[in-house]
Amino acid sequence: MNASTGRRARHHREDLSPPLPARLTLRPPTFPPGPVNGAWWPRSDDLAAELPALVDAFDTSWGRVTRMAAHRGVWRDAPCDLPVAGHTVRAAWYASGFDPHAVRLFAHGVGRRDLLVVPPGTEEATAERLMSAAADPAHHLTASALLAL
């Protein structure tokens, strides 16, 4: 077996393991709604690997996520179509005019959810503090403002 065959075999085995659940906190419904609806702490900057767990969390509790939007400079790749369990999420990428620390999810007929994206390498205590702040209805801060706390 050569090195590339071994890599393919390992990659295939990794694909068979179930993804870890999304690290996600959501704020309760409030009026007026805040600039963010909660926070997501992905494990890497590989959106194709991270999005399925996030979408799965929303698909079961909110509605099928069909589209997403994010800042192009944050994620390693910027594909237009992201396959997730049972369907594909269409992506819109912005170079400006969109908070670089947010992701926006859309569910057809349900609406949208804006989430603070806690950077993957963030220390656990800091990430937990940010996620709690994003889910707190008393805060009416943008994703970038929350990261500056």
Score class of each variant (00 low, 15 high):
113 R>Q: 11
137 P>F: 15
70 A>T: 05
101 H>S: 13
87 H>G: 00
39 A>Q: 11
120 P>D: 06
95 A>C: 07
79 P>I: 00
54 L>R: 02
51 L>A: 06
136 D>M: 12
132 S>Q: 06
131 M>R: 10
118 V>M: 10
94 Y>N: 00
83 P>M: 00
36 V>E: 10
50 E>G: 07
74 V>P: 02
40 W>A: 13
134 A>W: 13
99 D>Y: 13
60 T>W: 09
72 R>V: 00
53 A>G: 06
43 R>G: 06
127 A>E: 13
70 A>P: 07
103 V>I: 15
27 R>H: 05
30 T>N: 12
131 M>P: 03
61 S>I: 01
33 P>T: 11
52 P>G: 07
114 D>H: 09
27 R>E: 05
79 P>D: 00
83 P>S: 01
105 L>P: 10
53 A>M: 08
134 A>Q: 09
98 F>Q: 02
126 T>Q: 09
27 R>A: 13
99 D>N: 12
63 G>K: 11
91 A>N: 04
119 P>W: 06
38 G>Y: 15
28 P>Y: 09
46 D>G: 02
26 L>K: 09
55 V>W: 03
76 R>W: 07
40 W>H: 13
138 A>Q: 14
128 E>L: 13
68 M>D: 00
86 G>N: 08
84 V>F: 11
76 R>L: 13
134 A>K: 04
78 A>E: 05
45 D>C: 07
125 A>H: 15
74 V>I: 11
112 R>N: 03
98 F>P: 03
108 H>W: 01
29 P>H: 14
31 F>V: 12
114 D>S: 06
105 L>Y: 11
107 A>R: 11
48 A>Q: 10
38 G>C: 14
44 S>T: 15
90 R>G: 00
48 A>M: 09
34 G>Q: 08
61 S>Y: 00
89 V>I: 04
79 P>H: 01
110 V>T: 08
121 G>R: 08
125 A>W: 15
138 A>V: 14
127 A>S: 12
40 W>N: 11
86 G>H: 10
82 L>N: 00
27 R>Q: 08
93 W>V: 04
135 A>H: 14
137 P>I: 15
86 G>E: 07
34 G>K: 14
33 P>K: 14
57 A>D: 14
49 A>G: 05
42 P>N: 03
34 G>D: 10
80 C>N: 12
55 V>R: 04
97 G>N: 05
90 R>E: 07
28 P>Q: 15
29 P>N: 09
114 D>A: 05
116 L>W: 08
121 G>N: 06
99 D>H: 13
